[in-house]
Structure formats: C-alpha cells, structure tokens
Design a protein around this nucleic acid. Structure first.
Lengths: 246, 246
DNA sequence: CCTGCCAATTGATCCTGATCAAAGTAGATA
DNA sequence: TATCTACTTTGATCAGGATCAATTGGCAGG
C-alpha cells in the first residue's frame, strides 16, 4: 500500500500491473513471466476456484473486487480479505488454505500458473523478497482490521472502512485522499457488514447517521463524497501518532 | 504451527530453537548465525524496544509470553499478536511498524542483530523462503482471529482461545491435545479480554460458565483441564470441514 | 497472625447493536 | 409504462455484553 509507485513500473501489458513482479525484473525474466501468464474472468457472485489440475494459479486483480471469507457452522460469515485492483491473490510455495474466495463484482484476474511461478520465485530472489514484503503488508492490514473488529464502535467501523477505501482508491491514482475526495463504494451494505462484523441494518443506519452529521455526502446509493477528510479520520477513533516499534 | 517437528531441528544451543533458521542451514551458515546471536531478558510488564542504534534486532521467544497490541485514542486496546515460546519476532527487510510490544510475563528472547541477519537472508535463499512461510502462517492465524473477533459470541471466543492455547502447548511437546489435556493459562483475564475484544468481567463469567457446564475444569485460577476435547471444539462454533481453497 | 495488594468473581443495571418486520428505491425486462 | 427483483432504508423490540460496584481469594511481607 505504501510504495505503489514503485510497484507500478511496467512489466506486462496488464491494465493494472502485477504488484509482485515488476520493479527489478530483467527483460528475460519478464518474457518468462509473459509465457506463463493468462487471464480469467468471473461474474459477480461466482466462486473463484484455483486449485485442481490445470487451474492452479496465483495472480492479481485487474478489475473488480474479490473477497476471502470464512464461515461458521451455522452460517455466520466474516470477510478476512478484500482484494481490490492491483492486489495479489495466492500463496506461492504454501499449502492451500480453507477460505472461500468469491468474485464480489464482475472480476478479471491476471494469473500465472503456480508451478512455473514458484520455480521462478526460487530462481529469482528479488521476486521472493517482494512477496515477503507484500505478505508483511497484508499482515499489517489484517492487524489494523483486528483492532477495528475487536474494539471499535459501529460508527467508528464505518468511518474506518470509508477511510481505507478512500486511501486505496487514491493510491490507484497515485495520489492521497483530500477534502472533496469521492469514490464509488465497491461493496454492498451486506459485504460491508461482513467486513466489519456488523449486520447490514447497522451499516445502513450508521451511514445514514454520518450523512446526517455531514461527515460524508452520498450521490445515489453508491457514490461517496468526503467533504472534510480530517473530520472522517476523527470519526475512526484511531490514535494520530502510532505506538512503539516493530 | 504445522511443521514444528521440521522446525525444531537443532541449529543453535537455544533451549527452544529458532523457527526461522534451522532446517536447511549448512554448518558454516549456522556458525555465522551463532556469531550474531545474543540473549535479552525482560520483566513482566516491560516494553520490548527493538529499534535504535545497537539494539535493532529480530529474534524468537525462548521462554515467557510477549504480545503485540494497538491502542485507540481513548485507551481501548486490542491485542493483535501473541508470541509464545518458539515464535519469531521482527520484520527483516521491512520498516518498523506501530505496535506496542510488551513482555506479558518474564520473558527471554534469543536475538539476531538485524543488519547482519538481513544480509544473511539475502545471501541465503532458504532463510528468506522460510520467513515467507512463517509470515503466511501468521497471516492465517490473523484471519482465524478476525473470524473470532467479528462473528463469535463471548462463550465461543473463550472456547476458541482455550483450544488455540491447548494446541500450541501440545505442539511444543510435539503432540496433539487430547481428552484430559491440561495446561497453565499463560494470560490474565485482562489479557484474554484484550485478545478477544471483550471485557475482563465477561471473560471471567464465561470461564465460570464453561466450568459450570463441565466443558473445562480449573485447578486454582490458572491450571485448565479439558476433560473432553471434542466437547470444547463444539463450543467454538467452528465449521468442522473448511471452505474452499487458497 | 494480620495487612495490603492484585487478580478474579459475582451482582445489578444500562446501552449498543442484533433481530424481526415493513416499506422505499432503482435498474432491468417485458 | 408496468412489473419484478435486488438492494437499501427505517422502525420497534430484544438481548448480549459493557459498565459500575462490591466482594472474594491468594499470596507476600511485616
């Protein structure tokens, strides 16, 4: 999330470049990557299966939204990963894991076949290093998410999610969110609820409340405008200056 | 958490071996690691600082418990990482991050100075690979934790935590939890509350309830006995067979 | 033994967000 | 234009866990 400019150096003809495999690749490495690259599309609601013969792959999101989620015995579900354009999907060198991966909108993935990608990773240290960095970033995001789930009120949860999405959308344009920033909410109320550990009714109510209090404005159901970004941050409950060091 | 037997192959004289740097190291690599290795102790409650000149390090827990936590503006805190003996601490090759690291009991760390460790990691691909695997495992644990925080009831949260600790304790003995398993709770009620996103009163009440319902037995305040491990798993709400694949 | 201290337990009450229910809105299709 | 469907909003009520408060238990030090 930090060094996106670094990541977006061209290495393929994807509309959105692969975050994993760009910055330091030599020309011959790039052409090897091109060889094992292909695209897959999914319709909204479709599960993303990526194991089994001939379809083992890793890759990244070109357009659309995918989610990882886990479900309890009685059907309660919690989203545990949100994949927006440019995010990487897959666990090279690691066993598959029990998450449901779903296309949350029409989705286009740019994929690499797993085995040759892993081979290349082993022969090309900087790709492995880049994957480690990305995984550490994902871990940081997961920990921020844990704070949201465990200790924030419903209103703070909504404000936090809006702030996260605003930052992500801005990063794709290589900028930062600012007063007057606007974006399309890529998630339904229900998906937001699954992200935040709430019900969809609570999500709806809190969005209405933030609108009433002029923290956000809505154009239609999906378009969000943030008139004063600082005011939104206030609502997240986050500490302005972080804690100690890792 | 899975391939602990693999990780515990001797590579140093640590009572608990470093998970990161064992299995594939050659003798000369091991002696290089020995050179940059040292120990640090902390008292219960002490912050673990590991940045600044001369004290930049990564390492692993030998004895005791350390926690990573994050705090909101008004003091609400959420634990986002729990480090038990054999767990690795630090982010080689990555910027420091804003977590509070605290010794939750008397704590002994086995440390490597950061710079030489990073150098070695870059020159020794299998160490980097091992770190990637470990980080992916941590990410899985974080996602399980997110499900707990977002969707489980207080009783399910307690049962889940007990199950996790039972598994960890058993893994250190290279076995699995079984009927009659017992262990010392390494956390206070307050720490358990910070882990689970509850208050300490709720933790206490739910533990009492589980005891009343004969799901667990207590010897003193800290020693827990699980008479029927299957019954405890039932209480976690988890789906017996996982979902799809990553 | 008593005292002080801290962790844990238990009780009473309150409040946030869940649940159940109904109505509104927009886009797609005929 | 009318209808259908999926998504969203809003209302009324309920319950799980938070909060505030008092008590208990264990242990170290005098």
């Amino acid at each position: 999330m930090n060094d996106l400019a670094f990541d977006l150096r061209s290495c393929s003809n994807c509309p959105i470049r692969h975050r994993a495999v760009c910055a330091k690749c030599e020309p011959d490495e790039l052409s090897r990557l091109e060889e094992i690259k292909y695209y897959r599309s999914y319709e909204a609601g479709q599960p993303v299966v990526w194991a089994g013969d001939q379809m083992d792959f890793v890759g990244s999101v070109v357009t659309g939204i995918a989610t990882l989620s886990q479900t309890l015995e009685d059907g309660r579900t919690q989203m545990v990963g949100l994949l927006l354009p440019s995010d990487f999907l897959g666990r090279p060198g690691r066993a598959i894991a029990p998450y449901d991966v779903t296309a949350n909108s029409d989705l286009m993935l740019c994929c690499f076949r797993r085995k040759p990608f892993e081979t290349m990773m082993n022969e090309t240290p900087h790709i492995g290093q880049r994957l480690l960095e990305m995984t550490l970033d994902e871990l940081d995001a997961a920990r921020e998410w844990m704070l949201i789930l465990g200790r924030k009120t419903a209103r703070e949860k909504i404000a936090s999610l809006l702030s996260i999405i605003a930052h992500r959308e801005a990063a794709l344009q290589q900028s930062s969110p600012h007063d007057g920033s606007s974006f399309d909410l890529p998630l339904t109320r229900e998906s937001m609820a699954d992200y935040l550990g709430l019900t969809l009714e609570t999500v709806s109510r809190q969005i209405s409340a933030l609108k009433r209090d002029h923290v956000i404005e809505l154009k239609g159901k999906r378009k969000v405008i943030i008139p004063d970004f600082e005011a939104l941050i206030e609502e997240t409950g986050d500490d302005a200056d972080g804690g100690m060091l890792v």
